[in-house]
Design a protein around this nucleic acid. Structure first.
Length: 105
DNA sequence: AACATGACATAAG
DNA sequence: CCTTATGCCATGT
């Protein structure tokens, strides 16, 4: 295990506080390069179950979630986010008020 | 090395 | 709103 792109991505995702979401591009940018947006998706895709990675807090820039509330299983992510206090706009996240701004010192 | 695929982003039509 | 095309990177075959 070396410090690869995945580690950076995972680290960023783990820093996302509850009740907040971050877009793939956002995570990729914070990781170093915004072109890793696709890699972020792949990184989350290979996350083993039981990991402490809140992958459900990573959404598209549009605010859409993986699968969406109209897909079986995809609703889980939406439910989780709602449970954490994230506001939703139809099947999309209310990015205007819940997107992670990384206002961390 | 090459090609195909993907939980993306952006631009153009 | 949808499809197509391009860019960028990692992975699998």
């Amino acid at each position: 295990m070396n410090e690869n792109t995945f580690d950076k991505i995972y680290r960023i995702v783990c820093q996302i506080p509850e009740g907040t979401v971050a877009s793939y591009g956002q995570v990729a940018a914070l990781a170093g390069n915004r072109r890793w947006a696709r890699v972020v998706g792949y990184a989350l895709h290979v996350i083993p179950e039981g990991s402490d990675i809140p992958w459900h807090r990573v959404v598209k820039k549009n605010g859409e979630v993986f699968g969406g509330a109209g897909s079986p299983g995809g609703i889980c992510q939406t439910a989780l986010l709602k449970k954490e206090g994230v506001g939703f706009k139809e099947d999309y996240v209310d990015m205007e008020n819940y997107q992670w701004k990384r206002m961390v010192f």
